[in-house]
């Protein structure tokens, strides 16, 4: 069975096009569930009106589906709980210019 960390690692390579920070560091990955070859990924966006939402969603789907051992991929948007800045990692805060 594919490890959750493997999924998370591949998602760290998907960057938000505006901020240049990975969607994992931005706290946009809410949930990862692996059952055999079935992978479900719950994503949230920094704002519901983010026009890049569909592109990011499709990118996650493509990247996860390309992993060996993945048979089906379900990527969905999850608004509850909504994204808050508390979800930014220390690395993301540093990249946004607030912490050194």
């Amino acid at each position: 069975m594919i490890a959750e960390d493997t999924i998370r690692n591949v998602l760290t390579e998907i960057l938000d096009p505006e901020y240049g920070i990975s969607i994992v560091e931005l706290g946009m990955v809410s949930h990862i569930d692996v059952q055999g070859g079935e992978v479900r990924v719950g994503l949230t966006l920094t704002t519901p009106s983010c026009p890049a939402g569909n592109v990011i969603l499709e990118g996650v789907r493509t990247a996860v589906a390309a992993l060996p051992g993945v048979e089906t991929t379900d990527v969905y948007l999850q608004w509850d709980p909504p994204w808050t800045p508390d979800r930014l990692t220390a690395a993301a805060r540093r990249l946004l210019g607030w912490e050194t």
Binding site: G20, A52, I56, E58, G59, T62
Partner: peptide, 23 residues
């Protein structure tokens, strides 16, 4: 820049390296 990025690079996200819209 964002619209150009979406149109040019959006379809290949997750498949190959792309530049950032902000660049």
């Amino acid at each position: 820049p964002f619209l150009v990025w979406m149109r040019r690079y959006g379809p290949v996200i997750g498949k190959e390296p792309v530049p950032l819209a902000s660049k």
